[in-house]
């Protein structure tokens, strides 16, 4: 199931992209998944939930936006920055 590999790639991208917000809590990742991308949205969501704890994102939810074409894109990260 290549969805597990892709879920790891998603968290790799997130590790890099959160940059200065490394200490914040990631609460949502929005991913655009093309209908012809070769990725099953349900399986991808299952893989995401299965590995999110070990990857350090226990509070993260996955929002999948289905689109035509072959896209497989991390669009947006939503974080909670403590207002102290």
């Amino acid at each position: 199931m290549h969805e597990v590999s892709l879920a790891h790639s998603l968290f790799d991208q997130t590790d890099r992209a959160r940059g200065a917000h490394a200490a914040s809590t990631v609460c949502m990742l929005r991913v655009r998944v093309g209908e012809r991308s070769g990725v099953e949205a349900d399986l991808f969501a299952t893989a995401f939930d299965a590995i999110k704890d070990e990857r350090g994102y226990p509070a993260a939810t996955l929002q999948i936006v289905s689109v035509p074409g072959r896209d497989l894109i991390l669009e947006r990260i939503e974080l909670e920055v403590p207002d102290v």
């Binding site: 959160r18 917000h21 809590t25 403590p82």
Partner: peptide, 8 residues
């Protein structure tokens, strides 16, 4: 907590 979004 404040919500911050990063467009990737």
């Amino acid at each position: 907590p404040a919500k911050v979004t990063i467009d990737v």
